Computed example of a mutant assay.
Amino acid sequence: MKWMIPFGFLLAGTAFPASAQVVASDVPPAGVRDAGGRREPPLVLAGRFYSAGMLVPESELDVVGRLVEVVDPTLIERSVAPAIQPYDRVLLVVMGNGVAIGERIQLLRSASVVSPWGRIFIPTGSGQVLDVEAGVATVEVDRFYDRVAIDDIAIPMPEFDAPAGVSPVSARGLEGRVVGFQSSEPLIATEDVAFVNLGATSGVVVGDEFEAYFPAGQEVWGRRPEVFVAKLQVLRVSLITSAVRVVSLGHPALQVGLPVRLAARKP
């Protein structure tokens, strides 16, 4: 059983460089303000979107490179590669559709397989392509979501589109299940990310909300009523799965196989 307790969105238990820009929230668009002139928050924070993992078949990823080296010339022999720091430059072996100078890429770490849905990929950082020569790209890493490391793969930076100053609208219809979790050992006071088996092909979009629940059932002593477990917000959408975070928790009993249903739609 996976227990999940909401308390902000913290990347706990991960060591980052002291000056790393760990993106867990972004400033709302300057043009979206309430009647008092205050900025209204977006429906989903950009940092949550970019740091949310993906559960996808490997064939669905548009892999454009693999991190192979940190640009850190030295005459001193090293037994391990140097830790990647903010604004370090790294080398990518270009793959697939390739990259262009000025393009932004996101780095991912390959994690566990969740059959039959695919593999979990965890964002580690992002950066800008500075140069491409002979099939090798030089990238400056300027955002960290986790520890960036050799063998991370690169994909084009996904587009983030979450309106500010709006609230989800009550809706019904879609039903699915929890199929996995981004972290194998979520920490107390940390919001975890789960995956549900509903994605873009089902019409799910970033900002939609689902409810996880224990269904009603017949017991020897009578009928057990339905029990609300958690409210889940969609952070990132793939074709057949979505990454969701806990918004509110009725019972610390979120687990693989638990049914979910649509509760609200992004307007």
Rank of each mutant, 00 (worst) to 15 (best):
N197G: 04
V113G: 04
E103S: 02
L235V: 05
P42S: 06
G98H: 06
D72E: 05
P41K: 07
I155S: 09
V68C: 06
S126D: 10
V205C: 06
V113N: 12
A30V: 13
R224E: 11
V94R: 00
F228K: 08
G222R: 08
S25M: 14
A243Y: 09
A83C: 04
L198F: 04
E185L: 15
G180V: 03
R147W: 03
F49V: 07
V169I: 14
V90Q: 01
Q21D: 06
A264T: 11
A154E: 04
R245F: 08
V129D: 00
S110M: 15
S202R: 03
R104S: 12
S126I: 00
G37E: 04
G165D: 01
L187Y: 09
P82L: 07
R89Q: 14
L130T: 04
V129A: 01
V244Q: 00
V193I: 11
Y145A: 09
P17S: 08
P252T: 05
N197T: 10
I188L: 14
T241R: 03
G102M: 12
G203N: 07
R177Y: 08
V196W: 15
A230M: 00
A111P: 08
D152Y: 01
R147D: 08
S238P: 04
R109A: 12
V196F: 15
K2R: 13
R172F: 10
L43N: 02
F49H: 11
P116S: 03
V23R: 10
